[in-house]
Each structure stands twice: as C-alpha cells, then as structure tokens.
C-alpha cells in the first residue's frame, strides 16, 4: 500500500473485511429480505384483500376453491379441466416434463384424445391440444374456448338444459386475450361450473 497515505486508510484496504461482511449479511437477510417482504405483503394485503389471499371462492361460508387453482371434475354435469401432472394437488404442483419425442407422452395424449372424443361424441381430430395435455403447473384453471365449446352439448344434456343456454354461459365466461394482444383467450372452469350450479333448475331435469 501507499506509504504516504495516513495509516487508517491503509489498514482499511488491507484487512479481511469480516466485520462489514457479517453486518451486511444480517442486513441483507433481515432488512432487504424480511422487512421488505413484510412491507410488500402488508401493502398488497391492504389494497387488494381478495387477490392477496388467494382469490378464494366461498359458498355458504365454505371455501370451495380458488379461481387460480384447477380442481378435478368427474360428473358429466360439469366442464372438465385440463389433465394435471400433479393430480390437482396444489402442494405438489408440477408439469410432466416430458419431451415431445417421449413415447410415453405420445401414448398418454393418444389415450386422452380417445377418451375425450368418446365422452363428447366428437371425432378425434376435433379435440384441441389443451384438453389432452398437462399444463406447466398442473393447476391451470382455464381451458381454451374451443375446449369449452366441445363440452357444451354433453353438459347441456346431463343437466337437461338447452344447448344455447350453456353456450351463452360459456361465452359469458370467455376472457379474450388481454387488450387483444397479450396471452390467449380462455375460460375459467371452476367459475363456469359454479355458474352452472347457480342456474335455476331447468324444468324437466331429474
């Protein structure tokens, strides 16, 4: 080091900087990490209480799900969500991580196509991709408008509703791409199914 400069600065440049390193590590974790997270959480919670707490849907005081988490539907009276690699377990969210060249993936998709085609009474080629593929997170709450329309006839039949009525409901629940540019058009399956349940019972059903 420079011999002409005062000793203090010489020392500062030479010693291993453990003291500031220790202090900095605690500041990083507690102030920049923990305190920042608390403040961000608090502001978000205050401004957007519904969104901040998971966009939950309640019925008669019971949480029946979240708009942002797909749940399984089996009954013919309901629209089906996309297949899930996580069996709709939000604690185990996952995609299949199978490559397009993976034969297991091909077999699974073929099987799903046949099942969907049989269930909906349509040709195999009419089945859209999203209805037979597993989403990235395994809890994709949406299906494409095509996938929803494909299921209209079956749902209407099972509920004894007019096809037009169910079609109208699907149309009302179809969200377009944001500003027409971002993302893709979609239908929230859980919200659509709850809207179906909320319809007044059709005459002659059951």
């Amino acid at each position: 080091m420079n011999t002409t400069s005062p000793p203090a600065s010489t020392v500062h440049a030479d010693i291993a900087p453990w003291r500031p390193a220790f202090a900095f590590a605690f500041i990083a974790l507690l102030l920049f990490g923990f305190a920042y997270s608390l403040v961000g959480t608090g502001i978000g919670r205050l401004l957007f209480p519904h969104e901040a707490t998971g966009s939950l849907i309640e019925q008669d005081g019971v949480v029946v799900g979240s708009s942002l988490v797909a749940q399984p539907f089996a009954d013919d009276r309901y629209f089906q969500p996309r297949p899930s690699a996580a069996t709709y377990d939000a604690m185990a969210v996952a995609g299949s991580n199978q490559a397009r060249t993976n034969l297991d993936l091909r077999a699974r998709i073929e099987e799903a196509r046949m099942q969907v085609a049989a269930r909906e009474g349509v040709a195999i080629d009419a089945v859209p991709s999203d209805l037979v593929t597993q989403s990235g997170g395994g809890i994709d709450p949406h299906v494409s408008p095509e996938a929803a329309r494909l299921q209209v006839a079956r749902v209407a039949r099972a509920r004894g509703l007019a096809v037009e009525q169910v079609e109208g409901l699907v149309a009302a629940h179809t969200q377009p791409a944001s500003f027409g540019v971002f993302g893709a058009p979609r239908v929230n399956v859980l919200e659509l199914n709850l809207a179906l349940d909320a319809l007044p019972r059709a005459a002659g059903a059951h």
């Binding site: 996309r82 991580n97 199978q98 998709i109 991709s129 999203d130 593929t133 949406h142 971002f182 893709a184």
Partner: peptide, 17 residues
C-alpha cells in the same frame, strides 16, 4: 401444429407468450 404443443404450457399464455 403438433397436438402436444400445449404440453407444459398454460392456457392463459398460449404458445406465443
């Protein structure tokens, strides 16, 4: 145009996003 195009993708984003 592969039928597997949506595998691992989310409906709200689609292939483009």
């Amino acid at each position: 145009s592969d039928i597997a195009v949506m595998e691992g993708k989310e409906t709200r984003f689609g292939a483009g996003s």
